[in-house]
C-alpha cells in the first residue's frame, strides 16, 4: 500500500535518515522501533509529505509523491506533540480538522460525532481542550487524525506522557482500528508496545533501518536464547547432565528450546520448587543489533 524507497534526509551536517526502504501492507500495524533520535519522526514526515526527502521516494498505492492532495486525503497523522488548539473545544477541533479535509454539512457532523465517541469525549464536547487531562488530549489527538476516515494512519509516539490506564485505552482503540482494516504505522521506543500491537517491526537506529520482520521473526533471528530458571527442593545429584550453571538449589539454563529442557529437569532426582522461563525480547534484539540498550 505504501512504499518507502531509499529515503534519505539531512538537516545541515546531520543525516537524520539514511537510505530507508520498506513497504506497508494494507491492514497491518507496522512498527518503527528505535530510541529517540533514531529517525522515526523524520521518516514519518517524509512518508506523509510534510518533509521532502533529499533522496528516495514514497509511493502510495503505486503512485509516487505522497504529498499530493489526493494522497494526503488517504492519510491521517497524529503527531507526537499534541497538535490541538487549546482555546477551541473538542468538537471545534474535530470540526476544524475535518473541514480541512473537505468534510462539510451533515457528513462533517456525523464524523465529529464519531470522533467524540471514539475519544470518549462526548460529554466534554463543549469543553475547551486546555481543561483536558493528558489521556483525553491523546485520544482527541488520535480522533482528529481519523475524523476524515483515512486509509492509513501515522501514529508518532502516541503514548508519550500517558498514564497506564489511558495507554491501555489507546491500545484498545488501535486494535479496534486494525480490526476495521485500517493500516497503521506506529512509532515507539517502547518495545512492549511494539510487541503487543505490531504485526511487523522495523528496528531503526541513527537513521538506519537495521532489521525488519515480524516480532517472532526478529526474536528468532536476533533475539538471544530463552533463560530457564529452575529451583529444586534439594541439590540435584547429577548437575552435569542438566547443563547450565547450578548455584545451591537454583539452576540457570540458556536454551533456544525451553520445552526440550523440561524432561531433563524432571529427571534431576529432586522435586521442582519453581520454574521460570524468560523469553528473549525486542530489547535483546536491539542489544544484539546495536550493542547497546534501547533505553540508553
Amino acid at each position: 500500500m505504501l512504499k518507502a524507497i531509499g529515503l534519505t534526509k539531512s538537516f545541515g551536517e546531520t543525516v537524520a535518515v539514511r537510505d530507508v526502504s520498506f513497504a506497508l501492507e494494507r491492514g497491518e500495524i507496522f512498527g518503527l522501533l528505535g530510541p529517540n533520535g533514531a529517525g522515526k519522526t523524520t521518516t514519518i514526515h517524509m512518508l506523509t509529505g510534510v518533509l521532502k526527502p533529499d533522496a528516495g521516494e514514497v509511493c502510495l498505492d503505486g503512485c509516487p509523491d505522497s504529498g499530493r492532495p489526493e494522497a494526503r486525503r488517504l492519510q491521517g497523522l497524529a503527531p507526537q506533540a499534541l497538535a490541538l488548539y487549546e482555546h477551541l473545544t473538542a468538537e471545534e477541533n474535530l470540526a476544524f480538522f475535518g473541514g480541512l479535509y473537505g468534510l462539510s454539512g451533515a457528513r462533517l457532523k456525523e464524523r465529529v460525532h464519531w470522533g467524540l465517541n471514539f475519544a470518549g469525549l462526548t460529554d466534554r464536547r463543549h469543553s475547551r481542550t486546555h481543561t483536558f487531562s493528558g489521556g483525553m488530549l491523546r485520544r482527541l489527538n488520535l480522533a482528529c487524525a481519523l475524523v476524515h476516515e483515512p486509509e492509513i494512519l501515522f501514529l508518532d509516539e502516541p503514548t508519550a506522557g500517558v498514564d497506564p490506564q489511558s495507554r491501555n485505552h489507546l491500545f484498545e482503540c488501535i486494535e479496534a482500528l486494525r480490526a476495521e482494516g485500517l493500516t497503521v504505522l506506529y512509532t515507539t521506543h517502547y518495545m512492549e508496545e511494539a510487541e503487543r500491537l505490531c504485526d511487523r517491526v522495523a528496528v531503526m537506529d541513527e537513521g538506519r533501518l537495521l532489521a525488519l520482520d515480524t516480532v517472532e521473526g526478529l526474536l528468532q533471528r536476533y533475539g538471544a536464547e530463552s533463560i530457564v530458571t529452575a529451583e529444586f527442593l534439594g541439590v540435584p545429584s547429577n548437575p552435569a547432565a542438566l547443563g547450565g550453571s547450578l548455584e545451591g538449589c537454583r539452576l540457570t539454563l540458556a536454551t533456544d528450546r525451553p520445552l526440550e529442557a523440561l524432561p531433563k529437569l524432571a529427571s534431576a532426582g529432586v522435586g521442582l520448587k519453581s520454574l521460570h522461563v524468560e523469553r528473549p525480547t525486542l530489547e535483546s534484539v536491539f542489544l544484539k543489533l546495536t550493542g547497546r540498550s534501547l533505553r540508553d
Binding site: H45, P69, R72, R73, P79, Q80, A83, F97, C144
Partner: peptide
C-alpha cells in the same frame, strides 16, 4: 512550536 502547523501541512492544503 505546538505542532499544529505540522498537522496543517499534512492536510491536503
Amino acid at each position: 512550536t505546538r505542532g499544529t502547523l505540522l498537522r496543517l501541512k499534512a492536510a491536503p492544503i
